[in-house]
Design a protein around this nucleic acid. Sequence first.
RNA 1: GCGCCAGUAGCUCAGCAGGAUAGAGCAACAGCCUUCUAAGCUGUGGGUCAGGGGUUCGAAUCCCUUCUGGCGUGCCA
Length: 555
Amino acid sequence: MKIKKIIRNEIEKVAKSLKISINPVFSVEIPKNVDHGDFSSNVALVSAKENKQKPMDLAELIVAKFKRNKNFSTVTVAKPGFINFTISRTLYVSVIKEILQAGEEYAKSDYGQGSKILIEFVSANPTGPLNIVSARAAAYGDTLYRVMSYLGYAPSREFYMNDAGNQVEILAESIELRFREILGERIGEMPDEAYHGEYIIELASRINTIEGSRILHMNEIERLEKIKDFALNEIRIMHEESLSRFGVEFESWISENSIRKTGIIEEVLSYLYEAKVTYEKDEAIWFMATKFDDEKDRVLLKADGLPTYFVPDIAYHTTKYDRGYNVIIDVLGPDHHGYIQRLIAALKALNYDETKMEFIFLQQVNLFNEGEKIKMSKRLGKIVTMDELVDEVGKDAARFFFIDRKPASHLNFDMELAKKQSSENPVFYCQYAHARICSILEKAKALPFDTIEIDYSILKKLNKQDEFQLIKKLQEFEEILINVAEQREPHRLTDYLKELSGMFHKYYHDFNILNKRTKDTTLARLYLVTAIRNILKIGFELIGVSAPEKMSKKE
RNA sequence: GCGCCAGUAGCUCAGCAGGAUAGAGCAACAGCCUUCUAAGCUGUGGGUCAGGGGUUCGAAUCCCUUCUGGCGUGCCA
């Protein structure tokens, strides 16, 4: 990041002195082909037209001005009009110095300028244990949160509990059935629409132990109400615990039920009514969503007089606005994309700035074990829960795997691979790089010279191509983080960590780091390797994966 | 039918908001341990970027279109 910025600035300075006007869309990038230097820019190509010059000529003019610049060892013009830069050793060395000086705070910044960002994610229905899609959402949202915090945004994590409506009634009924079963009643087959999972029986038996005698004599309505409250509370605690084990905490838990009680729903409805965007048809109240680019109008109040899920959700979203967020991110499951258009329509009708909303859809997760796809059925209660997954493969592997794919892609989760302790498993591979460095640093303590006091002038001993490449990779870190935050794509971070780890493993293999006969080189390499370790460690922290100093081998 | 997302190596996926010869891992094959962890490293083969048009100096990337897959399209949430 820093080097790119330096190059940008230099180019702009040069252009100014040459009185060339520059198209600001020009880029500075790391070319794929190493023959094209360390960095390259297309300034001349994109600015040729407005200067009425050929790209090549323009490039030559600019390059001439770079002749005596200490930061670059060579600056050349190539084919259609690219300018290629090779970085000088001084500039490289300054990167390591910066990383070492910043320590565990490296790349931390105020880039986000305190922009208030709400990230709503997981928001699973409180009708059962968290499943794998929730786990993916948890890893995703939390990583986004961590990176944004690191970069000086002011993000906040929120969990919306749909603890009202039909499904919750069914939950209560399901438990009530099981409850009666425990008391010896013959209930026959559970109805299709009921929840079938083991946990329903557990909840029933728990409420029997705690409240059994009391609810036994209640009338059915009271009893269902009691069971509902009990179950919702239990399940919320269950969710919190699962998430907490996964390293995810939420700043706020918002209950749909409590939103329904505030009167905000009535406000929303009366506002829509006054705005004359509602009408009555078939005994229901409809919202003219088509007026605001939705495909069809939507029901607000059902014929039975009860609001649809839509209404409290609008109300909920207005609270997000009222809480003053600059950006409101909803992380949603794959089955919700038909829904957002109507939500946006409603927000427009209520005069909220819908451009603040951002929707991210995480695609589904398929679990594989030994090459076999694990079949799940929510209806039959046959699902692999988040807890089971974490028990099976561990938090580190689970978080890494979930993040390691861009959100819109389906994710095939290979449980066998996640458990492997070899280079095939990317989590292991990266953690091992970190551990390896730690073990080198440990060994370095036995060297017959001081390795604690850092003498940065020694860094000029780094002169191998592999070392420059590593440094170049290190300085990309800052930019990667910014990309993660801005594009909402955490997978770029795991990608980066894999690459950096790979480069280190190779370096380790090809070069001896500890050598007491070449003190300066040894020290310089130790500094380099320390810088790598720092970045790995920061990266792991940001994705919520541990940075082990030793790998303990399991048999 | 309509809408959203996807289609890149045998498999799993990247490709940085248009850049130079499309990359990585796995799998396959061939190698590397008296050495700081071989829990690792190196090499080889492998592609009509789903197809077809267009935009321009330049397209996997942007636009149009066709095909294929997933999901959505309830007075469910």
